[in-house]
């Protein structure tokens, strides 16, 4: 775990603790996590159900408050910001891809993609827009509403939306959880391409060893603690690590 400091980090957490509830009902979802996510890298977070993956991601993205510890995105420590500053930070520096319900049903694919920029009052970079659209292959679907798109297409719209504002980091919580393996593979390929070609930083939570193998690095959680990590994963090494953790 000492390797982290040598690479420039997009997101770092120190002593990150998250407790839900109080007293007897208290659930220690995160118990002091130190982790860094390198820029222009694709990192996967894995772990058994209930190990704290989603909680970690929400805390890293500033969607949820932390009980203790520090989180920084770039050089900004987000654990000190109030709601308004956090919102502005999310606008400028963070992209999201959720497992489901990523798109506003009233807007077309194109409007959904441009939504974060419009909220921030920024102009879309036309070249980037064209490149993203072509990368995710949505050119002929731009005028469609989400209800007219397949699940895979909807997720690709979500990926395009996350990419278009060139955020410092994209958080993805099981982005392929609802997709069949082919559509899932497509989406994962786009994510990896965007890291390689667009220099994007991505942190992805997943259950699927195959999905995790698209990443450059996988970190493993158990009971709210970071317990292992592997570089350059393959489906087999990920599966082996998971089995070893279960034991």
């Amino acid at each position: 775990m000492t390797t982290i400091t040598s690479v420039r980090s997009a997101v770092t957490a120190q002593g990150l603790t998250k407790v839900y509830g109080t007293g007897d009902a208290a659930v220690h979802a995160l118990r002091g996590i130190d982790v860094g996510f390198a820029t222009e890298a694709f990192t996967a977070i894995m772990g058994p159900s209930g190990s704290g993956k989603s909680t970690l991601m929400h805390c890293l993205a500033g969607l949820d408050s932390v009980t203790d510890g520090h989180v920084s995105i770039g050089d900004i420590e987000i654990t000190r910001l109030n709601d308004k500053r956090l919102t502005l930070l999310r606008r400028e520096r963070v992209g999201f891809i959720f497992q489901a319900f990523n798109l506003l049903p009233t807007l077309t694919a194109e409007q959904n993609i441009l939504l974060p920029l419009q909220i921030a009052g920024r102009q879309a970079d036309q070249a980037l827009f064209d490149r993203v659209i072509d990368t995710v292959g949505l050119r002929d679907r731009l005028r469609h509403k989400p209800s007219q798109l397949s699940g895979g297409q909807q997720q690709r719209v979500a990926v395009a939306r996350a990419l278009i504002s060139k955020p410092q980091v994209i958080f993805a919580d099981e982005p392929t959880g609802n997709l069949d393996s082919r559509s899932g593979a497509e989406v994962l390929a786009f994510l990896r391409t965007s890291v390689r070609e667009l220099g994007q930083t991505i942190v992805m939570v997943t259950h699927d060893p195959v999905a995790a193998s698209y990443a450059d690095r996988v970190v493993f959680l158990r009971d709210g603690l970071l317990v292992r990590e592997i570089e350059q994963p393959t489906p087999q090494t990920v599966l082996d690590t998971l089995v070893a953790l279960e034991a």
Partner: peptide, 13 residues
């Protein structure tokens, strides 16, 4: 969920 999504994308309260 739509509102939550918009908030995540940077819409202020």
């Amino acid at each position: 969920r739509e509102s939550a999504l918009l908030r995540a994308l940077g819409l202020k309260r």
